[in-house]
Amino acid sequence: MTSILTNNSAMAALSTLRSISSSMEDTQSRISSGLRVGSASDNAAYWSIATTMRSDNQALSAVQDALGLGAAKVDTAYSGMESAIEVVKEIKAKLVAATEDGVDKTKIQEEIDQLQEQLVSIAEAASFSGENWLQTDLTAAGGSEVKSVVGSFVRDASGNVSVKKVDYTLDNTTVLFDVGGDTGILDAQTSIEQDSITLTVNKDGVETEVTVVSYTTDDVIADTGSVFTGDSATGGGRSYVKVGNDTWVEAVDQSTVATQEVAYNDGTTSWAIDTTKVPGTITTASVADLSINNSTTTGQLDQLIQMVDDALTSMTSAASSLGSISSRIDMQSEFVSKLSDSIEAGVGRLVDADMNEESTRLKALQTQQQLAIQALSIANSDSQNVLSLFR
């Protein structure tokens, strides 16, 4: 039936054209945005996953920035520690040189003074973004302070998220200077004892080891009014006996300690070792403020050298820890970069449009649209044909 009121052919052609136009809009949207799933209406599940993972990827980008900042802090601290180690090595070498006979120790101290000032300069300069890991107020921090570097952003199987950190503890084994006290590696005070020697003495037939103050021949001579009689000497209020090569100890008249074996008989007096003369603390010193002069004994220098060597051991350990953290940050930064790329690629597989496929589809839809328009044009012309029936 032919009707001028209802044109079924035109309606069918129009419906087809509308469907093609809608498909073209979808295809053009995918081509322009590059996304197959651009909104939740396209694919709710994929859109939800992609949105969540893009959010995580942004967090990972922030982690990469934080790792860069953390690496700068660690590298600054490591560079400072490495430089400080070299300076402390020089101080140790100067002290060893001071043990040589005839050396002017005051001149060596002048060099040590400059090295100590350099240590302070290094510690003060080793700061990045307001963070200084070589000097801090350990006293105010309760003895230790934990510094953290952001390491990673983690989402577990339950969907819970957390930020993992790399910790580095500032304490008396890692900090060079404690600005609130004297507990850092370089400003920690060490007791310097009097020179001593451990001897075996015989009391009532029982041999006992005792540690007593020792003196060199020069020390004995320096004692006001020293008078030598063989291997014994008396000075300004003290008496001495020789117990080794250039080694003397204080002595008492054997008759006052009759239970002790005679250490030396000078023909006038029988001398016994004064076992009450135990070594005491002369002074306290640190690597940062140690001081020597021409009266500093070899024994005291040995103690100072040991103190500096102990500091070097602590500094080397701290530098090793900083180096390990730096290496870990580098590895973590590389991993985060690869992880971010993997997440981006995974999201792309879910939501990115296949441009080859979309371009092919667009060409086909354009052809279909042209045909649909032609079909609609033909269908609309049917009503014009009715006029020919009335001619």
Rank of each mutant, 00 (worst) to 15 (best):
V201W: 02
I373Q: 11
E86H: 15
E110K: 03
K203P: 13
T276C: 00
T2L: 13
V166D: 04
T169C: 00
S33K: 05
V149A: 03
R30F: 04
A93M: 09
I292E: 00
E110G: 13
S22I: 10
T2V: 15
I329P: 01
I282S: 02
S327E: 05
N132M: 07
V179T: 14
S79V: 10
I20T: 12
S388C: 12
Q370A: 15
T276K: 00
A72G: 07
I192L: 08
T52C: 01
E86Y: 14
E193D: 08
S61Y: 07
G237W: 13
M355L: 15
A140L: 08
R36D: 02
D223M: 01
E209W: 11
T183D: 00
L362E: 12
Y46V: 09
Y168L: 02
V347F: 04
S79D: 09
I31K: 04
Q260A: 02
T169V: 11
V257C: 01
N172R: 08
Q254C: 02
A379E: 03
D137V: 09
D101N: 00
V63L: 04
E207Q: 12
T316K: 12
V347R: 05
S19M: 14
V74L: 02
Y264I: 10
V120Q: 09
T297C: 09
F153N: 03
R361E: 07
T190I: 03
G130Y: 07
K203H: 09
G299D: 01
I20Y: 10
M307F: 03
T298I: 15
S129R: 15
V212I: 15
D167R: 03
F153I: 06
P279A: 07
R361M: 14
E124D: 14
L301G: 06
V120L: 06
L138N: 04
A364V: 10
V252Q: 05
T297V: 13
V308C: 14
D382C: 15
G68M: 00
L322D: 05
V206Y: 07
S381A: 10
N132T: 13
V213M: 05
S342Q: 09
A44H: 11
V146D: 05
K105D: 01
S321W: 08
W47K: 13
A263T: 01
G159F: 14
A66N: 03
N265L: 02
D309G: 08
T217H: 02
D310H: 02
A233V: 09
M355S: 07
E124A: 11
D156P: 13
A288Y: 02
V154K: 01
D382A: 14
K363S: 15
S381I: 12
S129W: 05
D330A: 13
I122Q: 10
S327R: 05
V241I: 14
